[in-house]
Design a protein around this nucleic acid. Structure first.
Ligand code: FES
Ligand code: FES
Lengths: 155, 155
DNA sequence: ATAATAATGGACAAATATGTCCGATATTCA
DNA sequence: TGAATATCGGACATATTTGTCCATTATTAT
């Protein structure tokens, strides 16, 4: 029989983006203690495939979200003054792009007030909630909850 | 260079689900006037690939969301008394499954209050909004807006 | 200088989602 | 009964996303 995405379609974020978010939170937590972390550390902390994670971290580096140093003593880190500025939104845009902000929920060319798709109004409010949530949630706050043991990166 | 989903990752719904929603709205509109529609009609109305759309309609038939008749004078339709009962939620579950309702936003095994992922609390509220929107939006209301020319299935 | 270490970048491979083709099945009507 | 019509279902094809491999580059310490 023909099988659908059914029972497994990934909403919201791509897998790459999920890894990106988790990695960023982990790196932030370590950077709070001035510790650089290696790719291996990250992959272990978030239970992600190492090589794939490498690609994602590179992408975050290119977007100036995280910092990297080569060689022994090298690794990934986040500038102390970036913590409070970096939001989930930055990470999502860097990895999944901003389809979330501009695309139509039903796949029409772009979301368009003038010629709205059938679910436009319903979507608009959800999307705005999501957008503002992403824009106001900082890496620092997420990393601190994690350190307090309130949240978990793996399970 | 390695390229990411970036700039095109599809949030919320799979393409199949988008087609399913649009098709259902179109069929509802026609059923309001007691008109059955053929696969060809549907594909034209929502600008979707015909054969793929066929699979999606079959899936909706299997889930008792739409009705189909074979042979000449056949086609797809929706029972009149189903209009107000069928919500976006039924369609989404039929095609994309209910990952939306139970999965973790960061890909942990399942969303879990006891061991929440770092974005659990932020997600929970968004997800509840989305869920209730999907559960309260009926095909009938969407089809009626469409008929009034307030919304569009293609653009 | 050289060896060891860690990120980088390109090419490749596997998995999943999307899309196509075509014969089989059921129904209508002449 | 038989031809025409429309959905159904299986196999196949393509595209995208996810994941892997390995050689290169930069940095550190010996
Ligand atoms: S037009 Fe579809 S979401 Fe705005
Ligand atoms: S545990 Fe991740 S969303 Fe609930």
């Amino acid at each position: 029989m023909f099988t659908f995405a059914a029972e497994k379609y990934k909403i919201m974020f791509s897998k790459a983006c999920e890894y990106g978010i988790k990695a960023s939170i982990y790196i932030t937590g370590q950077s709070l203690h001035d510790r650089k972390v290696s790719l291996k550390d990250v992959a272990k902390a978030i239970e992600s495939p190492e090589a794939y994670t490498s690609k994602i971290l590179q992408q975050l580096v290119r977007n100036n979200i995280i910092h990297s140093d080569k060689g022994p003593t090298g690794g990934f880190s986040i500038e102390k003054n970036g913590f409070e500025k970096i939001t989930l939104s930055s990470i999502v845009s860097a990895i999944d792009g901003n389809a979330l902000y501009i695309d139509c929920g039903l796949g029409l060319k772009k979301c368009n007030e003038k010629k709205p798709c059938p679910v436009h109004n319903q979507f608009k409010s959800i999307r705005e909630n999501l957008k503002s949530m992403l824009e106001t949630t900082t890496l620092k706050s997420l990393a601190m909850d994690l350190e307090k043991g309130l949240t978990f990166l793996k399970r």
